[in-house]
Design a protein around this nucleic acid. Sequence first.
DNA 1: CGTAGCTTTGAACAGGCTCAAACCGAGTGG
DNA 2: CCACTCGGTTTGAGCCTGTTCAAAGCTACG
Lengths: 239, 239
Amino acid sequence: MTNPLILKLEQRDQLSDDEKKALENAIARIRVVEADEDIVREGDRPTESSLLLDGFAARYKIVSNGRRQISALHVPGDFLDLHSFLLKTMDHGVLALTTCRIAAVPHATLEKITDEFPHLTRMLWLNTLIDGAIHREWLTAMGRLSATAHMAHLICELFLRLKAVGRAEGDTVQLPVTQAELGDTLGLSTVHVNRVLQELRKERLIRFQGDALTILDWERLTKVGEFTSTYLSLQNEDR
Amino acid sequence: MTNPLILKLEQRDQLSDDEKKALENAIARIRVVEADEDIVREGDRPTESSLLLDGFAARYKIVSNGRRQISALHVPGDFLDLHSFLLKTMDHGVLALTTCRIAAVPHATLEKITDEFPHLTRMLWLNTLIDGAIHREWLTAMGRLSATAHMAHLICELFLRLKAVGRAEGDTVQLPVTQAELGDTLGLSTVHVNRVLQELRKERLIRFQGDALTILDWERLTKVGEFTSTYLSLQNEDR
DNA sequence: CGTAGCTTTGAACAGGCTCAAACCGAGTGG
DNA sequence: CCACTCGGTTTGAGCCTGTTCAAAGCTACG
């Protein structure tokens, strides 16, 4: 299967053959991390960045009373800690939500890319900028939307992101994420996540049984979640 | 006065004279924006990025019922929309909270920098990565801290960021931000912001009269806000 | 001296939380 | 093949943090 990162980047701009080759060659090794294991820990100073090839992962922080906040949910094609290339010290941990297949890209290789491939460098930079745009969107949803709207918003986003890397079958995606994990993502309690999901089901906006999430009414779901996809930068442009 | 962006970047890594000159030369013009005016609007496709030389600015989004969420507060030396260089379309507006002096850096010049100055490119990239780290921290504070802790956290952050660009006098900084704006930043109502500030004052953690914010007890304030500064990347390292 | 914008106060209300227990389904061992 | 266990989901009831609405108090400025 082709590298899902290339799939992701090519959706935003053309990549030359040399650039694609450079990306493929950047992968030093591939490893598998089991569900519920840490991929990177807060405070680590990685010498390579992890690219998620398969599976689901989450960035998270723990606060004093043991509560957890998830600041990013990752799907195949996402870099989990590309920012550690320049930030050096991890300000959060990264957790495997399912079994994950992960490609390691050495920081030394990334540095070489920035020396030799300006456009590819911009594309990697773009990748981290999209992370930032998602963070801003989450901040807005968290601060100013109701729990139900926030959940609807997250579902819209995940559906589009999964679709963009070819992980949707029609209106259905596999979303192997527990209600507790959703709660930690949205800043809600597990109990309330459950009630909110029931509401979305009752309104016939989604079906969500087991891991299978089906969008029943995209139109209304985006309306409830006040969702527009601009921030995901799904447009192909010269960058 | 020297360019506060250079001050900011030199705190994180050495810059060569050529790099500094390239940064200085990147400024095409300087303009002044009055308080409460938009610097960039959501949906805009800027051809230059705005560097804040003086004043305070905020990134914000408006949601359907007219409520506003501020996703970033900016101090001198911050790029307000460096990300528009690669994201192309603004996913949020940027507002001047006070009179702002702003340097315009054309995207064409940024592209040239990425072609010719790999290390400077990494430093600009780093700049956007720090924005992202702050977003994550805010997400955590918003989702999992009490209103009081969240406010304490924000105050700690702003104090350090202002200090880092030489805008602190001892334990005091000028923070010309209204309680309504703080509310939109923290995702709280203005009324509650007021009560939370009173609590921090009563606890003798801060003084905040007019625009002057004084830290009375840094130790306890960081404890209340569960604040550690790692995410601000204030360390000088090879990047 | 008046006004406009910001801060402060009070009181009722509500959205989401906590605690506790039941339920459910898939895998596991006897 | 059935009982058991474990992780996750669902339900109920009371509570608490932060909201809303409305009005009064400040303060800087013209």
